[in-house]
Simulated assay, not measured.
Amino acid sequence: MSRPFLKMNGLGNDFVVVEARSKPFAPSAEDVRAIADRERGVGCDQLVSIEPSARADAAVRFWNADGEEVGACGNASRCVGWLLMEASGRDEAVIETRAGLLKATRAGERRVSVDMGEPGLRWDQIPLAEEMDTKGIELQVGPIDAPHLHTPGCVSMGNPHVVFFVPDAEAAPVREVGPLIEHHPLFPEGVNVGFAQIKARDRIRLRVWERGAGLTRACGTGACAALVAAARRGLTDRKATLELDGGELVIEWREADGHVIMTGPAEVDFTGTLP
């Protein structure tokens, strides 16, 4: 059974998007890994399916490249929002995800804003294995008396994030430390690991080791988490431009309702048929 797909990306964070509103799509973890394989499959960071929804324009499911289904993916939500708006001709779309309903709106030519909802800031929302203040948790990397990295912030954006603040994001040990922290016992569901350099009150350079996908060119929920973690510590204002390897996102943590708004591009790369 062949099935058409769209290859899309948000700042180089790439997805295979499958239309499943008329025909159900239920890939096994093995299927997901085969599709995501960059040498033998289509190749992607995440697999995304668009499914019918009783309370939104569509429901969306996300799988990481390792085959695990996850609750949220910011860049993919932006891409799906753009597709739904193009199809309907409207300037907004509502997407149902495991993490809740997300609203996407047009923000210019191939630019989309997504309301990612309120961040989860309690230790049991992340979740952590034990109670801690998520503004700065007790976790360090390196020698006890002079750790290289310490006291990161934690935020849930429908998926778990830990954010280390570093003097130089380019020099941060993302590949070395990322996998260690991703599987640290403090994070029972694993965690996405951000390395954030504060450049100004409205600018953050961010690199992300993504749970189940590794070092990615951009992580939308990671950008949201980094801005929230920075603003909670007073390191930045509540709105900033996030510089990711693949480009820039504008993130705002609204004062009025506590929601996080992510704005950035959505691109279609090519279409094809899954084997």
Rank of each mutant, 00 (worst) to 15 (best):
V162M: 12
I198W: 03
S88V: 06
L180V: 12
S49L: 12
V208C: 09
G108F: 02
L149V: 05
A213G: 12
E109R: 03
G272P: 06
M85W: 08
D31G: 09
P27A: 09
L101D: 07
G272I: 04
R110Y: 05
H150E: 13
V174E: 00
R55E: 07
P127V: 03
W82F: 09
H148I: 03
D37M: 13
A56E: 10
G247T: 01
T134Y: 02
G81H: 06
A230N: 05
A87E: 15
C219E: 02
R55P: 01
V268F: 08
P24N: 09
A196L: 02
V17A: 04
E68T: 12
V174G: 06
E243S: 10
H150N: 06
I261A: 01
V208W: 11
A196N: 02
E267W: 07
V48Y: 14
E130S: 04
A226E: 03
W253Q: 06
T263Y: 01
F164P: 05
N13P: 14
P119Q: 00
D45W: 12
R238I: 09
E51Q: 10
A58G: 04
G234E: 13
V112G: 00
G74V: 05
E19A: 11
G120H: 00
M1Q: 03
A99R: 07
D31T: 08
P143T: 02
G108D: 01
N159H: 10
D124M: 03
G212A: 08
S113H: 00
R106G: 10
V268A: 05
A256Q: 13
A76I: 09
L242W: 03
C79S: 11
H184I: 13
D237C: 08
F25T: 02
R78Y: 09
E170Q: 07
E69A: 15
N159L: 10
A223S: 08
H148T: 06
V141H: 12
I261N: 02
T151P: 00
R38F: 14
A87T: 08
E39F: 15
D202A: 08
P24H: 12
L6D: 14
V94K: 03
A59D: 11
A93L: 04
P152G: 08
A87F: 13
V114Q: 04
I126K: 00
V155W: 00
E30A: 14
R217Y: 14
L206S: 05
P275F: 07
D168E: 04
A93W: 11
G153D: 00
I95R: 11
L274H: 03
K23H: 05
G41T: 11
R106S: 09
A226K: 01
V208G: 11
H148V: 09
V60H: 12
P127M: 05
G214W: 07
N192M: 07
V18T: 12
R33W: 14
G81L: 01
E96K: 05
G108S: 01
R232Y: 01
M85H: 05
L242K: 03
R254L: 12
A172F: 11
A229S: 10
V16G: 11
P188N: 05
P173T: 02
N9Q: 14
A213F: 10
